[in-house]
Write a protein that binds this DNA or RNA. Structure first.
Length: 832
RNA sequence: GGGCGGGUGGCGGAACUGGCAGACGCGCCGGACUUAGGAUCCGGUGCCGAAAGGCAUGAGGGUUCGAGCCCCUCCCCGCCCACCA
């Protein structure tokens, strides 16, 4: 065999053989149990970067392991190919997004192939192809029929940078765009909307079953869905028939309500303001309208408001309370009106202090000192407690008070218990070009008519003029716009908006099941076998966007009878970022970008893969490190050299193994323990910890260097170990593994592939130690250790321990008060 | 303000269910082989100390024979959400 490890000369060869043999075709083992391993598909903007190399390497190591474990594995890949970056680039240089995207796909595909990923390439999809997006349109029409899609009139989030409407999930906390960080403003524009809120409770409940998702992701979804239980209560307005409906989660505090506050945009503001206050109110409302949302509601924004002159009546107490408007009350949350209880709400407290409104304590802490009058408080007391000065509801625990008071309000007809959600419906119209055309035709007589199924797809016209000015580009393509009404045949116009590209990624995992199917989005029978996805690998940044949308979409598909289960994916693995060598995010700006392609050319795919897996567990961020990469190349070279050095062992017969004894037996033990450790590191019965699995392999290789075979049984033990090293290496560094495996096995393996071989089993008898090292402590401090047979009892170990010189010295002249014995581990003498 | 993660050598990271802290790798130091070595192989490497020994997992307390791990108080870092009524 070649004396030196030369990855570039061996890697393409194995890639070709896997490809030709169809080694990774899903469905090859129809009678075997299935596993669906999926990584989030890439958005092909420019070339592949290190982040991609990391996700796909993680998924690939797992997929290869599962193949070896005997499963029928589905491990597909495709391209999330529609979207703004390609369109924005087109505005700059005039190249058509389709042309650019297809070129990028070619580059991505080449890079991924060079990394040796075990994708089933026959299932490759690209969402920009009409064969794919026609099914987005098909789903749209179905969902319209089901009432899940509707046309909404109202305020939408308009991204000033992307020049389009975006979804709530795409608006960041500081009112900037998730994609481009430009300010997001409100714009009154009709939008096509998914009624995701109809699934809010179900999406929330489903989270409890996602026990194999990272808790932080399910928590984020839970918070985003934001179920909030409370009550609505109507306050009558004095001298008017109008009622102010407030939403509160703390109806138990209502006897302490000393004023009511409306959002400046609340429809009643104009009606209720008294003549003497009108000028002030109008000025305030106008000022708020001009102030942008960040400034108005951002952290640290001072609370401001004005009195409207009107009064409302607390239906529980009959008390007359002033009605104010204030900046911190948001029209879009709850009812846009709040009852203020300054004693028990911090915002209300600050506002009351500022404007001299009364503060009345109506909740006493369940334990501890009673609260004095409101005026003496330093801050609001917001904990649940016991109701006080609350009329017939006094003396109740907060939770009980809420139940009774809500029931009372309902009985009296001025309120009820209610649930509010943070989740909003998903507006998915985009005033952009590079997306799925929304299959709607506007007819003068029939309104918005869905394109009939047999007329799909509505193909995106290639001749668009893309300007990014906010006008839908499709509106400027007359031959696209002009059509006829499917109902009456009269001239009509097409919808010119396109779909949010999150639609594409909401169901792509199902398209992989039958990617070329032209009669349906996917084959339901195949879905029954392959879904749900068993392991999904991707970045945590998608927690409340993609990962919420695809859970929603799966429920829709469930409702349409296309899939059996409600959740799309059993286990989610979120991987960390690959930063530059300087610890900063890789970026042209810092000049710290390292490309996977370049690294593969320099070190080979196996070294790059090993780096991705060895640097840290999948979920942690890592820094690219040239030194660590050198180290991993060195490791593979070291593996290679030990095979070269131990070539004389290649022919040793297995028959010699049972006689192995002494050091050879020790080597065999190490071999089998390593098999067990690597299997566990690959997720067998726990988390993925590729780093410790590779570390275990390194230890075994170190042991092989230390062992000089002298006899036939020795050589057999070495051979067994070498075969195991090759097999265990195969999920991580598959090319080197194939090469080495074939070298050891020689002619008998010529027509076989390691990638096709079963995972090596370990012998439990060899994994179990027969002699163990037991740590000996005196008063909890380590004073030595003894070797004892694995079954040694306390008396036996104690005798050994007391014979140890260091232990003896520490026990000398002391009284042993107690001896703690942990079998196989430790003995502790407690002395005085 | 709320939620979720974290804090371990010079660095990345190990440590099963409370049982020898620092596996493995990087870096560094030394040795061998060499005309040479930024190759390779071997050895060493938490800190203090000549040693015995002592001290060490963000800080301080507690529980325990024994704590990186459990409990309490606090500090710091990251991510997500946020005047959400």
């Amino acid at each position: 065999m070649n004396e030196r490890y030369e990855p570039l000369s061996i890697e393409p060869r194995w890639q070709k053989r896997w490809e030709e043999a169809g080694t990774f075709r899903a469905g090859r083992r129809p009678t075997a149990e299935k596993r669906y391993v999926l990584e989030m598909f890439p958005y092909p903007s420019g070339a592949m970067h290190m982040g991609h190399a990391r996700v796909y390497t993680i998924g690939d190591a797992l997929a290869r392991f599962l193949w070896a474990r005997g499963y029928d594995v589905l491990h597909p890949i495709g391209y999330d190919a529609l979207g703004l970056p390609a369109e924005n680039a087109a505005i700059k240089d005039g190249r058509h997004p389709a042309e650019r995207t297809r070129e990028n796909i070619v580059s991505f595909r080449a890079d991924m192939k060079r990394l040796g990923y075990s994708f089933d390439w026959e299932r490759e999809i690209a969402t920009c192809e009409p064969e794919y997006y026609r099914w987005n349109q098909w789903f749209f029409v179905k969902m319209l029929e089901q009432g899940i899609v509707y046309r909404r009139q109202g305020k939408a989030n308009w991204c000033t940078g992307c020049a389009t409407v975006i979804a709530n999930e795409q608006v960041m906390a500081d009112n900037t765009c998730e994609r481009c960080s430009s300010p997001v403003v409100e714009k009154v524009i009709p939008e096509w909307t998914f009624r995701i809120t109809a699934f809010a409770q179900d999406l929330l409940d489903g989270l409890d079953g996602l026990t194999e998702w990272p808790e932080r992701i399910t928590t984020m979804q839970r918070n985003w869905i934001g179920r909030s239980e409370g009550a609505e209560v109507d306050f009558a307005v004095e001298g008017s028939t109008e009622r102010i409906k407030v939403f509160t989660t703390r109806v138990d505090t209502i006897f302490g309500c000393t004023y009511v506050v409306l959002a400046p945009e609340h429809p009643l503001v104009a009606k209720l303001s008294t003549a003497d206050r009108r000028a002030d109110v109008q000025a305030f409302v106008q000022r708020m309208a001009k102030t942008d949302a960040i400034e108005r509601t951002g952290e640290g924004a001072p609370k401001e408001g004005v009195f409207t002159g009107a009064h409302a009546v607390n239906p529980f107490t009959g008390a007359r309370v002033p009605v104010w408007i204030a900046n911190f009350v948001l029209a879009e949350y709850g009812t846009g009106a709040v009852m203020s209880v300054p004693a028990h709400d911090q915002r209300d407290f600050e506002f009351a202090r500022k404007y001299g409104l009364p503060i009345e304590v109506v909740i006493q802490p369940a334990a501890g000192e009673r609260l004095g009058p409101g005026a003496s408080l330093e801050k609001a007391s917001t904990e649940d407690g016991v109701t006080d000065r609350s009329g017939p509801f006094s003396g109740l625990a907060s939770a009980e008070a809420r139940r009774r008071m809500s029931a009372f309000a309902k009985e009296q007809g001025f309120g009820d218990a209610t649930v509010r959600w943070h989740l909003r419906d998903w507006g998915f119209s985009r005033q952009r070009y590079w997306g799925t055309p929304i299959p709607i035709i506007y007819c003068e007589d029939h309104g918005a008519v869905p394109v009939p199924e047999q007329d799909l797809p509505v193909v995106l016209p290639p001749q668009a003029i893309i300007t990014g000015t906010g006008e839908p580009p499709l509106a400027k393509v007359p031959e696209f716009v002009a059509t006829t009404c499917p109902r009456c045949g009269k001239p009509a116009r097409r919808e010119t908006e396109t779909m949010d590209t999150f639609v594409d990624s909401s169901w792509y995992y199902a398209r992989y099941l039958s990617p070329k199917d032209d009669g349906q989005p996917f084959d339901a029978a195949l879905a029954k076998r392959w879904l749900p996805v068993d392991v999904y690998v991707g970045g945590p940044e998608h927690a409340v966007m993609h990962l919420l949308y695809f859970r929603f979409w799966h429920r829709v598909m469930h409702q349409l009878g296309l899939v059996q289960e409600k959740e799309p994916c059993k286990r989610l693995v979120t991987q960390g970022i690959v930063n530059g060598p300087d610890g900063r995010k890789m970026s042209k700006r810092w000049g710290n970008v390292v490309s996977p392609g370049g690294m593969v050319e320099k070190f080979g795919a196996d070294t790059v893969r090993l780096f991705m897996l060895f640097a840290a567990p999948p979920e942690k961020d890592i820094d690219w490190s040239d030194e660590q990469v050198d180290g991993l190349f060195r490791f593979l070279s070291r593996v290679w050299r030990i095979f070269v050095a131990r070539q004389p062992c290649f022919a040793a017969p297995d028959a010699a193994l049972p006689q192995a004894a002494g050091d050879a037996l020790e080597l065999r033990r190490r071999t089998h323990r390593t098999i067990k450790k690597v299997s566990e590191a690959l997720g067998e019965g726990g988390d993925l910890k590729f780093n410790t699995g590779i570390a275990a392999l390194m230890e075994l290789v170190n042991a092989l260097y230390a062992f000089e075979p002298k006899s036939e049984p020795d050589r057999a033990a070495v051979r067994e170990s070498l075969v195991a090293v090759a097999a265990l290496l195969s999920p991580f560094a598959p090319h080197a593994a194939e090469e080495l495996w074939h070298e050891v096995l020689g002619a008998p393996a010529r027509d076989r592939l390691l990638a096709d071989e079963p995972w090596p089993p370990f012998d439990p008898a060899l994994v179990a130690a027969d002699v163990v090292t037991i740590a000996i402590q005196v008063n909890g401090k380590l004073r030595g250790d003894v070797q004892a047979p694995v079954g040694a009892g306390e008396a036996e170990v104690r005798a050994l321990a007391e014979a140890e010189e260091r232990v003896k010295a520490h026990l000398a002249g002391k009284t042993i008060r107690k001896v703690v014995f942990v079998p196989k581990r430790l003995m502790n003498f407690v002395v005085g």
